[in-house]
Structure formats: C-alpha cells, structure tokens
C-alpha cells in the first residue's frame, strides 16, 4: 500500500518554477529520501504535502487522503520536523509536548503517559522540565522528533533533520530515525543535501535538481548505474587531458568540474597505470589521482554535470528570486 502518492505536483512563484511537475510514490514503511542541493525545491514539496502551501497545479495524497480536499485528515496523519526549529523556547520540553498533545486533542490521561514514553525514546527524560532555550541543537531536534510522534502519525516528514549538527549527534539521530521506522512502523520521508545521510538511511532516493526529479531508485541501484569505480584526477591542463581520455574505449563517462576530472570505469586499479602513462606521453602533468567506489555524490554529478557544492553557489541567487517573487 502506498503511504504517499504525488502526481505532477507543481509550485510556481510568478515566473519562477520551484517545483516542476513532480510525481512519485512512497510505499508504506519506506524511508524515502529527497536528495538535492539547497533551493532544489525539497522543502517546497514538503510544505505542499503537509498542507502548509497550496500547489499551483497537480495533486497528492498522504495516507490515502487528498492534500487538496481533506487537509485536516492529512494533518492528523503526519508528523513533521521542520528545517528551522519550531519549538517554544520559553516553555519546558514537557510543556512543548503537552501543547502539541492538546492541539491534536489527545485525551488527558493518555497524553501524560505518551509524553513520558516518547521523551524516554529520544533520551530526554532527565531534561523534561528544562527550558528549551537551554537545550543544544541535537536535543532540540530530538525533542521535535518526539513531539512529531505524539499523535501517532502514519507518515513522518523530516526536513533536513541533521542540518548544522556535529557528526556524533548526526549519528545518534540516524539511529533514532531507523529505530522509529522499525519499531513504530512509520513511513519516513526526509530531505537532505548530505549524500552520506541519504545513502545510510534511505531505502529509496529521489534526486532533485531545480524542481525536477532527475533520478529515483534505491541508493544501490543508482550507484551501480554509474559503473564500478570512480577515478578523480587533478591536473594543471584538464582540457587537454579530457580530450585524450575521451578517446579511450573503457572510459564509460567523463566529467569536468571544480578543476577536476572524474571518470567512471571498470577495474580502475588496472587502468590507472594506463592513464598515468598516457598523460606522461603527452606531457600533461598530473597533480593527484584517486580511486573510490561510487557515492550518491557521483550519481548527482552524473545526472547534472555539476557537484552539489557548485549547485549551492547558485542557491543564493535563486533564494533571492523566490523571496522577491513572494513579496509581490
């Protein structure tokens, strides 16, 4: 059974198309990742699915309820952790949970027990009466997750759940997310621009760029498509090197970016000597050379011809446009 079904969902801000006819299906019990650089439209998709934003066209259903016609049912079915914090800092952890419980009309006798149980799940039992303003970033995120679970949602939205957290906290949070998915059988849809996060957590990934889904599959399959190995070369004359390497039959794909050349190929260990030899023959200096197994980062590069870091640079301009368009 599908937890979420999205059909040609589109959001336009005047001329700017933030989300461009996106369609996908998420099965129950999946951890689905929306992967892409900042400003790709991930948060806009989440906002539309959670009924905070009206789509320009297209439709979607969450837990079988239409986001256009049955907003209240959708809202009851989902829990959400926003990209930006949404806690009341002047209240305690318990009070934030209690406020949420009352808003979702959870009966009083049930409410208290559930809050205690969930605070335990995210390891905040000792701090339950602490004011949120004294909490660290990781604690706040965990509290928001616990809060989102209080009304027993069928689907959980996590918008950049580990943004700005240190590696150790991220690791912890990942464990919590996996635990939730398994123990509570909750379908999770998360957005991220961390490739390793998507790789580690998600059973299925949709790669988004400029409002469009450019690839969608399991992380394993996406990486397989790229080829067995990835070789990255730094050279002072990459144009010349690229033109020479392109002629080789075993080079499956070659990309230039950030002053580097990335090659997808089989049996990189054997071919690397050939590459070095070839460049020496043509008098092209190689500064460094490395081999690695493909990551989702390479998948993104493969589909867009850019790395996610290059994308981020454009992002500021794009955000400025969106803001300007909204103001009108």
């Amino acid at each position: 059974m599908e937890a979420i079904q999205v059909e040609k969902l589109t959001k336009k801000y005047n001329e700017l198309i933030a989300v461009d006819a996106v369609s996908f299906t998420i099965e129950k019990g999946e951890i689905f990742g929306l992967l892409g650089p900042n400003g790709a439209g991930k948060t806009t998709i989440i906002s539309m699915l959670s009924t905070l934003l009206k789509p320009t066209s297209g439709t979607a259903s969450v837990n079988q309820f239409s986001i256009l016609e049955n907003q209240d049912a959708v809202r009851k079915s989902i829990g959400i952790v926003f990209q930006d914090q949404s806690l009341d800092e002047e209240l305690t952890a318990y009070e934030n949970m209690d406020f949420h419980g009352r808003l979702y009309r959870i009966p009083k006798d049930n409410r208290h027990n559930k809050i205690i149980e969930l605070l335990k799940l995210v390891g905040l039992t000792e701090r339950k009466d602490g004011f949120v303003k004294t909490f660290s970033g990781g604690m706040r995120r965990r509290l928001e997750m616990a809060r989102g679970l209080l009304h027993e949602p069928k689907v959980m939205f996590l918008d950049e759940p580990t943004l700005g957290l240190d590696p150790q906290t991220r690791n912890h949070l990942w464990q919590y997310i996996e635990k939730l998915n398994k123990e509570k059988e909750i379908t999770i849809i998360l957005t991220t621009h961390y490739m390793d996060e998507a790789d580690r957590l998600c059973s299925k990934v949709a790669i988004i760029d400029k409002g469009k889904i450019i690839a969608m599959d399991t992380p394993e399959k996406l990486k397989e498509e790229i080829g067995a190995d990835v070789v990255t070369i730094a050279s002072s004359d990459i144009d010349e090197l690229q033109s020479k390497l392109e002629l080789l039959s075993w080079v499956k794909r070659i990309e230039k970016h950030d002053g580097l050349i990335t090659i997808n190929l089989q049996n990189a260990e054997k071919r690397i000597a050939e590459i070095v030899h070839l460049s020496a023959n043509h008098g092209i200096a190689i500064n460094s050379i490395s081999i690695h197994k493909p990551t989702l980062e390479d998948v993104f590069l493969n589909f867009t011809g850019r790395t996610i870091r290059e994308e981020e640079a454009d992002h500021k301009d794009r955000m400025r446009m969106i803001r300007r368009a909204r103001r009108r």
């Binding site: 009924t51 209240d72 989902i78 926003f82 949404s86 808003l103």
Partner: peptide
C-alpha cells in the same frame, strides 16, 4: 520568525 507558528498552523485545528 522563531518558527513556532508553523507548529500551530500545521496542526489539525
């Protein structure tokens, strides 16, 4: 600005 309004606006009320 501090995001709390989202929490109330996304609730089924």
């Amino acid at each position: 600005q501090f995001g709390f309004l989202k929490e109330t606006l996304v609730a089924p009320v």
